[in-house]
Design a protein around this nucleic acid. Sequence first.
DNA 1: CCTATTTGTAACTGAATCTGTTACAGTAAT
DNA 2: ATTACTGTAACAGATTCAGTTACAAATAGG
Lengths: 178, 178
Amino acid sequence: MIGNTRFLIATHIMVGLAGKKMYMDGQPLNSEYMAYSVNTNPVVIRRIVSELKRAGLVDAKTGPNGGAFIAKDPSRITLADIYNALKDGGDIFNVNECKANHCCVIGRGIKPAFTNLVGEAESALLDVLAKKTIKEFAIETIDKTLRDEYKDQTSTIEELVQKVQQDENSTFEHLEKI
Amino acid sequence: MIGNTRFLIATHIMVGLAGKKMYMDGQPLNSEYMAYSVNTNPVVIRRIVSELKRAGLVDAKTGPNGGAFIAKDPSRITLADIYNALKDGGDIFNVNECKANHCCVIGRGIKPAFTNLVGEAESALLDVLAKKTIKEFAIETIDKTLRDEYKDQTSTIEELVQKVQQDENSTFEHLEKI
DNA sequence: CCTATTTGTAACTGAATCTGTTACAGTAAT
DNA sequence: ATTACTGTAACAGATTCAGTTACAAATAGG
């Protein structure tokens, strides 16, 4: 992993779908809309959605008003689930391509020792990710941003979401929906 | 990071230099020799050594019998030091190239929230790496391998290193040194 | 049943990254 | 002086990544 932006995009998608369920109508979001938000091509979104789907985190409908929607309660999905859903999720450090020379003691010993270390490191990483649900993360992303922008700590988040939808509507006109 | 094998190679190099100091004469190892053990090109080694040097972990001498040697006590260098010494050490997940659309609430909120998360994840990772010194890691790599290979739990490690050097000598002949 | 909309996936492209390599100036030991 | 190294620039090939086009399959709604 790393270097690529797939985990970031997958998380972005999941925040969108979780937010849609938590604060709005829970209807599907199509790939064109999500691509607009992520600022990329719809196919990039569909590729990642397809992996999230395989992991059972989202579901999707074809046809008019189709799109992706979250398949579980947002409080029951953690960022570790998202990380693991991605094909290249494993292996923080590349130990697979270790081709150390077995004619040398260190060459023989380095791969098992390093593999062990990478295992510890990865499990520490997953512990962090597993502690954060996509519900919490969506709140950090959406709720916090809206309250900061509107300097409003008292309205319900549903009210603020409605407000921002109106404000943003013009920018989404070409998509003919919010 | 990730995808590349630089951290693995840097660790391999450091195990070699630590082992040379801990179990042998502490004399410099040249890049040709290390390249043989890592099974790559000497320039690849020199590039990484140069980064380790900048971080103060190793030092190097030019000229005959030159090469790199460890600059501190192996018990005072952790794997986190090695990780941080590498230019591309930071950023487990790519959040720099986040180009989410600011016309959308999530697009505005995702980057700070994700940056925060990456910070937590990275610090958990560094905690794991900081707990392991290169001395411990060299023992796991060299000591363990030799005792397994010779099924010998009683000799000193220096004795086993001498033994394996004799056994390996033939394979290093073309390098004219072990 | 027909049409419009949307997913899912294959195939291709250009850009970027990674690794290996050659080359050579600079430095130090003998 | 000569020989043996480092340090670094420059380049090439392989691989990966992101974006794009294209199209079959599925489905909603008239």
